[in-house]
Simulated scan of single mutants.
Amino acid sequence: MTITNAPWHHPQPDQSDVHLDVVPEAVLHALAAGGTDATTRRPMSPWLTGPECASLWRRRSEQIRERPGDAPWVTRLIVDPAVALPVGVAGFHGPPDAHGMVEVGYRVDPAHRRRGYARRALETLLAVAQEHPGVRTVRATVSPDNAASLALIAAYGFVENGEQWDEEDGREIVFEVSVDGQRRPTEDWNRTR
Rank of each mutant, 00 (worst) to 15 (best):
G35W: 10
P43R: 02
S178M: 13
H29P: 08
A140Q: 02
T2A: 13
N190I: 04
E123V: 02
D109E: 09
R171S: 14
E172M: 12
A32M: 02
P51W: 15
P72K: 05
R65H: 08
E187Q: 13
A90D: 08
W47V: 04
S178Y: 12
E187P: 00
G35L: 11
D70A: 09
D166Q: 10
L125P: 14
A129F: 10
A90Y: 01
Y156T: 05
V128F: 04
P95Q: 15
P144L: 03
I173R: 13
H10D: 09
D14S: 14
V89S: 03
R115G: 04
Y106L: 12
W57D: 02
R184I: 04
E160A: 13
V159H: 06
P43A: 08
A38K: 03
P185H: 09
V22F: 00
L125K: 03
S45M: 03
L150S: 06
P13Q: 13
V79R: 15
P133L: 13
V128S: 05
R136K: 11
G100Y: 13
L28G: 10
A71T: 14
V22Q: 00
H99A: 15
R115A: 06
M1C: 08
D109W: 03
R183F: 00
W8L: 11
D80K: 07
D109K: 05
R191V: 07
A71W: 14
A151K: 13
G35V: 08
D17L: 15
L31M: 14
A90E: 04
Q164H: 01
V23R: 01
P81L: 10
T2H: 14
D188A: 00
H9R: 11
G34F: 05
T75R: 03
P96Y: 10
W73P: 00
E176L: 14
R139F: 01
R119N: 13
T141R: 15
S61K: 06
L28V: 04
R193Y: 06
P72G: 03
V102G: 10
T141N: 12
P46F: 01
D166S: 06
A38I: 11
A6E: 13
V174N: 07
A30C: 02
M101N: 13
W189P: 08
R184M: 03
D70M: 09
P24L: 00
G134A: 15
R193E: 09
A127N: 01
R171P: 13
N5A: 11
G50R: 01
A148K: 03
